[in-house]
């Protein structure tokens, strides 16, 4: 369905509760009363069309609004991704970690199965955190820097001093890895681990991991299809600026 800025924000969430995470990531607080989507967005300094583009995509997965999202300032999307990161690091991951640690009570395994899984997951988490940190520390500031030069907010000289020979290509490298491993984890838990003793608990864990995998896929999609093409576009302008120096 097509959603509009005149709809009530609360109704939108009723349609699909997954949108709660979009609201959280855009730092839109709840307590909407009967306010419309556009009122709530305006009150929280979120661009209504940007909000609608993201929301529409959450509701209709096979239509990714690439062109539309590319038209907005990259800092909006970066803000969205940063808040996603925060939620992972401060809440989701520690919680999952605790659940995984209980695996040895869950699995009906005489051997080391549980420890092996715990080890795998811990390794995964540290890689995951590293990737997020690297994004926050290098890639995002670089992208924002490129945007500032292109829109004449800082000079080319200032930019070069800050980000000597970084380019966006470098950052793409370990993306695939993270996705691959979470799918491996799903498959191992689903297909190869001895049947669990507490089915309810184990099923829940698996659902959470699937959700993390799906989130990660979305994350990659936003980065690979919006942020990176946008930066590559801007890097062309940048190269022209460099030529003039």
């Amino acid at each position: 369905m097509r959603i509009s800025a005149q709809m009530k924000m609360a109704d939108l969430v009723h349609i699909n509760f997954e949108l709660l995470s979009v609201l959280q990531r855009l730092m839109i607080p709840f307590g909407f009363k009967d306010k419309s989507v556009s009122t709530v967005c305006n009150e929280n300094n979120v661009d209504v069309d940007f909000f609608l583009a993201l929301t529409q995509w959450f509701l209709n997965r096979d239509e990714f609004p690439q062109q539309e999202l590319m038209n907005y300032p990259p800092e909006w999307l970066i803000g969205y991704l940063q808040h996603t990161h925060k939620c992972y690091i401060n809440y989701q991951i520690p919680r999952l970690e605790k659940e995984i640690e209980q695996l040895d009570q869950l699995l009906n395994a005489p051997d080391h199965s549980a420890q092996v899984m715990i080890h795998f997951f811990k390794e995964y988490i540290s890689e995951f955190s590293e990737h997020i940190e690297e994004e926050e520390r290098v890639a995002f500031p670089y992208i924002l820097g490129v945007e500032k030069v292109v829109s004449n907010k800082i000079t080319y000289k200032e930019f070069v001093e800050e980000y000597k020979d970084y380019s966006i290509g470098k950052y793409l490298e370990n993306h695939t890895d993270l996705e691959e491993k979470i799918f491996d984890l799903q498959n191992i838990l689903l297909k190869y681990v001895p049947p669990p003793t507490n089915n309810c608990h184990f099923t829940n864990l698996l659902i959470e991991i699937y959700r993390l995998g799906k989130d990660l896929k979305d994350h990659t999609l936003l980065e690979e299809n919006v942020l990176i093409p946008k930066v590559k576009e801007m890097e062309i302008t940048l190269a022209k600026l460099a030529g003039k120096q």
Binding site: M117, F120, K181, F183, I188, Y192
Partner: peptide, 16 residues
């Protein structure tokens, strides 16, 4: 196996 990463394969190898 539907497992791609080396660490995933290692887990499988130990489990089996």
């Amino acid at each position: 196996l539907d497992i791609k990463s080396v660490s995933g394969l290692t887990v499988y190898a130990i489990l089996n």
